[in-house]
């Protein structure tokens, strides 16, 4: 070939290769899955790109091995909630963890609130208008993972790299859709609570549920393992919530999640009136 063509071809080849690399990098998702002895953890997002000026739903996907569990924001009689320490690029902020409805896990005379198997602890992330690639979201996650025999504290550094842009639903979108968060209580319900000795009586006027379980957000107030008897009243139902023998601080409000027999879950926040004398 004539000498001038070769360098030209080289320039074109390098340009083409550079363009191809850029396309690969923006589509690829660099993901690290942390695998510990009793769990696996990774950072996942509902979309496959971070939209500058928008929000992105991001979650810690934490999966305990069979027979093991991790904990809710109120772990119950023992244990420790999972914590997420975000490491985000400048201008990015992450909201509080949105805790899915937990299970009550009984162990002898005690009870914990948590998750067997997999849970997605999600947060809304604000993406700054000037966000530029590479966008690397990272976090240090710490969790306590237990089975009836042992408790092990574990942690992991998780990260997720995303391109900038609108993108589309990610491969984890279905997992995000399946997250069970408590909803607002039905508008027809009227809630009131009254202290009655070693119980708090929660009245729900307008409810027809035959089963209700209260999961308190506040620790150290409720006897977590005790039954919560329910009875029908003329106008609805009354749930008796047992108070701890060693309550920590004043029990002024019932804040937490009410779960029905049909597995619907509602967030409530009701002032507790003093016992009638």
């Amino acid at each position: 070939m004539r000498p001038v063509v070769l360098p030209a071809l080289l320039v074109v080849a390098i340009a083409a290769a550079g363009t191809a690399w850029w396309r690969f990098a923006s589509r690829a998702e660099h993901v690290t899955v942390v695998v510990t002895e009793h769990a696996e953890a990774e950072l996942v997002a509902a979309r496959d790109a971070a939209d500058p000026g928008g929000t992105l739903l991001v979650a810690l996907r934490l999966k305990a091995k069979p027979g093991w569990h991790t904990y809710w924001r109120n772990p119950g009689d023992s244990g420790q909630p999972t914590s997420i320490e975000w490491r985000l690029p400048p201008g990015f902020t992450a909201g509080a963890i949105r805790w899915p409805v937990p299970q009550r896990l009984s162990i002898g005379p005690l009870a914990n609130y948590g998750y067997e198997g997999e849970v997605l602890l999600s947060s809304q992330v604000q993406v700054p208008a000037g966000a530029k690639e590479p966008i690397q979201l990272a976090a240090r996650a710490r969790w306590l993972v237990c089975n009836p025999e042992h408790c092990i504290p574990e942690s992991g550094e998780v990260s997720l790299a995303l391109p900038a842009g609108r993108g589309g639903p990610s491969k984890w979108a279905a997992l995000f859709d399946a997250i069970r968060l408590p909803q607002a209580a039905p508008v027809q319900w009227k809630l009131s609570a009254q202290r009655d000795g070693d119980r708090v009586l929660l009245e729900v006027i307008g409810a027809e549920e035959t089963t209700l379980t209260f999961f308190p957000y506040e620790e150290g107030k409720v006897r977590h393992a005790a039954r919560q008897p329910i009875e029908r009243t003329g106008a609805g139902v009354r749930l008796a919530i047992p108070v701890s023998a060693q309550p920590v601080g004043e029990f002024a409000r019932l804040t937490g999640v009410l779960v029905t027999g049909g597995a619907r879950a509602f967030e409530i926040d009701v002032a507790i009136m003093a016992a009638q004398s």
């Binding site: 009984s106 002898g108 023998a245």
Partner: peptide, 12 residues
């Protein structure tokens, strides 16, 4: 489990 083991006594 709940049936076999009562919760901690109300009067602990």
């Amino acid at each position: 489990a709940l049936m076999l083991f009562a919760a901690l006594p109300a009067h602990a």
